[in-house]
């Protein structure tokens, strides 16, 4: 009897543990992580930026930055060293576009998403 009671208690504890496992419910209307991206605002230089940056980065990576002209120039130069394709003649327009839209005063809101499968 005592042994049966111990078993029942152990099973109850196991079920209680399972029942208290954290449940997560994501909003099904949200996009799946990695499927919806920010878009870039219109303007001179947008085309050059998209052509050079989008092969490796979604626009999200750009629209969250808050960089000065000096910082943007350094980033663009680094990416060109790392294989980004951008004509030297396109660089001024691209940097100007990035500074104008994603300078130090820029505000960014992450995309609310759900994991795949939710």
């Amino acid at each position: 009897m005592k042994r049966a009671a111990i078993i029942v208690l152990a099973l109850a504890a196991a079920f209680a543990s399972a029942a208290t496992k954290r449940s997560v419910a994501f909003d099904p209307n949200l996009p799946v992580l990695g499927t919806k991206f920010h878009s870039l605002p219109a303007g001179t230089g947008k085309q050059q930026v998209e052509a050079s940056c989008f092969p490796c980065h979604s626009a999200d990576m750009l629209v969250q930055q808050r960089l000065t002209e000096k910082q943007w120039t350094a980033e663009v130069d680094k990416m060109i060293r790392w294989g980004a394709v951008m004509k030297e003649s396109d660089k001024p327009a691209a940097v100007a576009y990035l500074v104008k839209n994603f300078g130090p005063a820029n505000k960014f809101t992450p995309v609310r998403t759900r994991p795949a499968g939710y």
């Binding site: 997560v24 990695g34 499927t35 995309v111 998403t113 759900r114």
Partner: peptide, 16 residues
Amino acid sequence: AVAPRARESMLQMNGY
């Protein structure tokens, strides 16, 4: 295995 609790989200900083 679990019941839904709330409407939650992850904050995507970069899509790819």
